[in-house]
């Protein structure tokens, strides 16, 4: 529908919308996070939900203790290799549509513990991440910003066509392989479908 006509109509008291707008509006305003935290960043996430920062303003006040009822996984904290399979399993148990925010240096890259023997170098090795937030820990404002970024992403989704979201593509995966405990490392150490090692950027 033409934007000009729509605003003209709304001045006359006629509200028009599309199914797509309505659907995205509904989804983006009731994102229920999964209630779990992994390390120090979780404290900041808890602060974000409390009265001072009040994540409830964005429709995310209900943290669900069960992955079956959650839409959003906030990976808040250090993902150790011992914990990584459980995090992936929790993600697999969430119903589509589902989103992931990787919160803090640890969750996006291993942070201060990168190159250590027991910390995963970022949860994006095993599950697709929608928004990464740097910081150690990120402030509540940063988490709210990530949340608004996610809402914007949802708002811009097209329900039809080749770049429709994953949950509307019948054969797109909604579960990802859970890594196994190996003798020296997790097996596999990354999921190449989801993540490829970065390039140094230098050529020649």
């Amino acid at each position: 529908m033409d934007e000009g006509l729509r605003s003209e109509l709304s001045k006359q008291g006629i509200f028009t919308t599309t199914l797509e707008d309505l659907y995205n509006w509904g989804r983006k305003n009731s994102i229920w996070p999964l209630q779990f935290g992994l390390a120090c960043c979780a404290i900041e996430m808890i602060a974000t939900t409390m009265a001072r920062y009040d994540l409830a303003r964005f429709g995310a006040e209900i943290f669900r203790p069960s992955p079956r009822q959650a839409d959003l996984m906030i990976v808040a904290g250090t993902v150790t290799k011992k914990m990584a399979p459980q995090v992936v399993r929790l993600y697999n148990q969430m119903p589509e549509p589902k989103y992931v925010i990787a919160m803090g240096a640890c969750a996006i890259s291993g942070g201060p513990f990168k190159q250590g023997y027991n910390v995963l170098k970022g949860i994006d090795r095993y599950i697709p991440v929608d928004v990464h937030i740097p910081g150690c820990p990120p402030r509540p404002e940063a988490l709210i910003h990530a949340f608004m970024t996610l809402q914007r992403q949802i708002d811009e989704q097209k329900l039809t066509g080749p770049d429709r979201p994953r949950h509307l593509v019948a054969d797109a995966p909604s579960e990802f392989p859970v890594p196994q405990f190996g003798e020296h490392d997790l097996v596999p150490s990354k999921n190449p479908e989801v993540w490829q090692p970065p390039h140094s950027g230098r050529t020649e």
Partner: peptide, 25 residues
């Protein structure tokens, strides 16, 4: 207690060899 059952190495030993998973920094 920190690593899982089935892990074969002892990571704080001085001759511990890490898995070859270096990433660009």
């Amino acid at each position: 207690i920190l690593m899982w059952e089935g892990f074969k190495d002892h990571p704080m030993r001085k001759d511990y060899v890490q898995p070859d998973d270096f990433e660009y920094e």
